[in-house]
């Protein structure tokens, strides 16, 4: 067995254990749902508990034979992969205070750079994105987007 196959098989098993843990947690959560009355014989608990059992059984099958999984990124690619969601979180947190255009500029400049654009190109592209999408959504389609509390 090659190293890559080993690692992907391991990733599959780790994933299977996580799903099994989810099934257990979901089942316990489902069995503890509080309710005062139910107008049907099943009530709100049966479906979640049944689904937890089904997922648990399926996970056992999956763990036995996880099948093909792709290798997970490592090194610089992993850093880049994690940078994308981080940039989205930053942009979302800045959406209300800085406004749509500024936060989208930060997001698109960062993501463009992560995707391999030289910094200057990434900044120019981001300016284009911010202007284009602001014009399309705010002016053309009249979709509500925050203007930014910092700028009044």
């Amino acid at each position: 067995m090659s190293d890559k196959t080993k690692s992907t098989s391991l990733a599959g098993r780790v994933g299977g254990v996580c799903l099994l843990a989810l099934a257990v947690a979901y089942g316990i959560g489902g069995s503890r749902i509080e309710y005062a009355f139910a107008s049907d014989p099943l009530g709100p608990r049966v479906m979640p508990v049944a689904l937890a059992i089904v997922l648990g059984i399926l996970c056992l099958f999956y763990l036995r034979k996880p099948g093909i999984a792709e290798a997970f990124p490592t090194g610089p690619l992993l850093v880049k992969t994690l940078a994308v969601p981080t940039l989205i979180i930053i942009a979302v947190l800045l959406l209300e205070p800085l406004g749509f255009a500024a936060s989208i500029f930060i997001l698109t400049a960062g993501v463009g750079w992560v995707f391999g654009a030289p910094l200057r190109k990434a900044l120019i592209g981001a300016a284009g994105h911010a202007l284009l999408w602001w014009f399309v959504f705010s002016w053309l389609l009249e979709v509500y987007l925050p203007k930014g509390t910092l700028f009044g």
Binding site: V84, I88, A91, V92, I104, L107, T108, V111, G112, W113, F115, G116, A117, K121, A122, G125, A126, H129, W133, F137, V143, L145
Partner: peptide
Amino acid sequence: PNWLLVPGILVLSIV
């Protein structure tokens, strides 16, 4: 190029 395309996809997703 992807560096121009993917940020556009993300903006559309967020909006």
